[in-house]
Design a protein around this nucleic acid. Structure first.
Lengths: 157, 157
DNA sequence: GTTTATGCAAACTGTTTGCATTGCT
DNA sequence: AGCAATGCAAACAGTTTGCATAAAC
């Protein structure tokens, strides 16, 4: 079921002067196919299935490269474990932001109001960039609260 | 120079049914007086100065309580160490968001466009809240990029 | 007096690093 | 051939936890 046309990241990474290794290729494929936000270990496990020679260290090092080039986003949802997500999905899937449940840790992607948000962000970025002489590469918008399940059973403290 | 009127958080914390201990009081005072975003260890050190009986563990535990009640915000700027900031400053200081330099880790608070941002956020929150049946408690907006110093010397990779 | 909070030390967890080896190009 | 990337094991850092003691209420 996994259609794998021209690998998305492969060419870009190469363009930055990095070598394409089996491990990196496998990691990029996992990221390209991922529907959810994956932790480094999630990625390691998925890659391991098709390429058992992989090491967790390489996953971290490759992710660092991908994040630093802006090809992959790194998120922190507050559970002490970073999550990674490809910047541009297979078909340039809609940009989205996150709703993070502090009760159970569930993360909901939303794209509602995203156009308005992006319009304002663009304007804000331009202003901030000028005022603070700051080159903006990326942004992060997250809402925290309680999801439908957790709002009912707020017994747990 | 530290004016300490009616402690801000004290009453609120008590209202939640928590006991007011010397350690907690000292922590809350440090947070109330803080101008910057403090890490748990920063707080520990500052509290230690006036109350050497404090333990780092208690700092963590108190912060957890304060964050869970919404009295204090917890941020992650990507350096693997959480930062804490009082939700409402001494005089209800202006709400702000962050500009995070991925080069040197510097964090700039900005309040520009904040009204427009807040207006949109409010609207977005209302929509999301309804659509996903999600109770929104807090939000996080951060821009990542390179500050004036780091954009010139991007030698370091 | 009862219960919550504390400090200490040890445990834990995710991530990073040193180094000799492998494998792209 | 030459240098970047890898894996392994060990180091690391921030945070959490168990437990007996102390302090709020």
């Amino acid at each position: 079921m996994k259609s794998r046309q021209e690998p998305l990241l492969r060419g870009k990474l190469k363009g930055y002067g990095y070598r394409i290794t089996q491990g990196r290729e496998a990691i990029m494929n996992v990221l390209a196919d991922a529907k959810e936000h994956l932790s480094a270990e999630d990625i390691y496990i998925k890659v391991y299935a098709s390429y058992p020679a992989i090491g967790l260290t390489s996953v971290y090092r490759t992710l660092e490269v991908l994040v630093s080039t802006g090809l992959v986003y790194k998120f922190d949802f507050g559970d002490g474990r970073a999550r990674y997500e490809i910047a541009e999905g297979r078909r340039g899937e809609a940009h989205h932001h996150h709703l993070v449940c502090t009760g159970c840790g569930r993360v909901i992607d939303y794209a509602d109001f995203i156009n308005e948000e992006l319009a304002l962000l663009k304007k804000t970025e331009a202003g901030l960039s000028k005022k603070y002489n700051f080159t903006i590469i990326n942004h992060l918008i997250q809402f925290y609260g309680f999801c439908s399940k957790c709002k009912t059973n707020k017994n747990a403290k």
